[in-house]
């Protein structure tokens, strides 16, 4: 049975040749040489007519088996080469994913703005409005209406920049001036619920903790039957949103001309949780706010009937919060606006 031997021989030969195939070109050549119509394997069929009829079935089966066997290995080889090709392609297309992304990174807000925006949002969410007021104010709104008449000792506490040749005009020493505006301009007199974030100025030499320009956020709520207990609850709400759920506050009696009673508000230290650390100087508490019940004299001066209306007010020092929170020990760094400093607030 030479023919059948030959089929086997060609099969062996083809499989051997296939073993040497390494890449696509060789695979093509192999296909042409063996599996194409006139290739060695397929070509065996043309010998059919030379085969005696009684052996043709056997021969046919042998050829088919040979072709099937070769084809099988051929396809495997083909897959293998394609996988290898793809692998090569991926290798060549590989990029360095550690290179920077194409979208530019968001800029950073000065912590001054970070704190103002955060506090503002909290009070907006509580249903307050925002009255920014102006940097240049009159003595009337900055002092007189707020129960700080001329020669009042409290004017010593806030040495003021006055404008030259502009009688009674000054740079506001406190954002409370905006509250006086709000109360005077409310017509007819009714409830008020607002915060006044903004800049204020005092004749202080700039050093690590003092700045001739600084920012405050003052809050004011006026209504019928507003009490100190309402102030306390409001500040608790604010402090917990701003500094964490577990924060407590404590009130210490203090003095501001525009409130009576007046309090300083300490917040349990957000660094150590009240155990005592370097941030709170071991006391567990950090002084954050000044607050109080609006002095009836202020209400009356701004046109409110102090028998009917009462209110509370509070104020936060923006830079102080920023410095405590972000570990900045020099207020001048805030106003220097060094990009490397601002980078810490990217996306804020």
């Amino acid at each position: 049975m030479d023919c059948i031997d030959e089929a086997t021989k060609i099969k062996e030969e083809a499989l051997k040749a296939l073993m040497d195939v390494k890449e696509e070109g060789q695979l093509g050549l192999f296909f042409a040489a063996y599996l194409a119509k006139k290739g060695a394997v397929s070509g065996l069929m043309s010998k059919m007519k030379e085969i005696p009829p009684e052996l043709r079935a056997t021969f046919g089966a042998a050829v088919n088996a040979a072709r099937k066997a070769v084809e099988e290995v051929y396809l495997e080889k083909k897959d293998e080469i394609e996988a290898w090709k793809l692998k090569k392609k991926f290798e060549s297309e590989k990029i360095d994913i550690t290179l920077p992304g194409r979208t530019c990174l968001p800029g950073g807000k000065n912590p001054y703005h970070v704190v103002i925006d955060e506090v503002t949002k909290i009070f907006l969410d509580m249903g307050y409005e925002v009255a920014e007021g102006r940097d240049v104010e009159s003595d009337l709104y900055n002092f007189e209406l707020l129960n700080v008449p001329k020669d009042h000792p409290a004017r010593d506490m806030q040495d003021t920049f006055y404008l030259d040749g502009m009688k009674e005009l000054l740079l506001r020493t406190q954002t409370s001036a905006a509250q006086a505006h709000a109360m005077c301009e409310e017509n007819p007199k009714g409830p008020i619920q607002l915060i006044c974030p903004g800049k204020a100025y005092r004749r202080d030499d700039d050093d690590m903790t003092h700045s001739h320009q600084f920012a405050q956020i003052e809050g004011l709520v006026i209504g019928e039957e507003i009490s100190m207990a309402n102030l306390k609850a409001t500040l608790e709400l604010f402090v917990r949103k701003m500094f964490g759920e577990k924060r407590e506050i404590r009130l210490r009696s203090s003095y501001f001309p525009f409130t009576e009673p007046s309090v300083e508000v300490d917040v349990s230290c957000f660094n150590c949780g009240g155990k005592g650390c370097s941030l709170c100087k071991g006391t567990g508490w950090i002084e954050i706010l000044g607050a109080g019940m609006v002095n009836p004299k202020v209400l009356e001066a701004c046109g409110y009937d102090s028998k009917k209306y009462s209110g509370f007010a509070f104020g936060v020092g923006v830079e102080r919060v920023a410095m405590l929170r972000y570990g900045c020990d020099d207020i001048r760094r805030i106003y220097a606006n060094d990009i490397r400093f601002l980078d810490a607030f990217q996306g804020k």
Partner: peptide, 22 residues
Amino acid sequence: YDKIVSTLPITQLALRGLTPKQ
């Protein structure tokens, strides 16, 4: 001041929030 029990104020509901300019 620790004798004061916190009570949130009851205020009139009003449309406040930011002005269009803000």
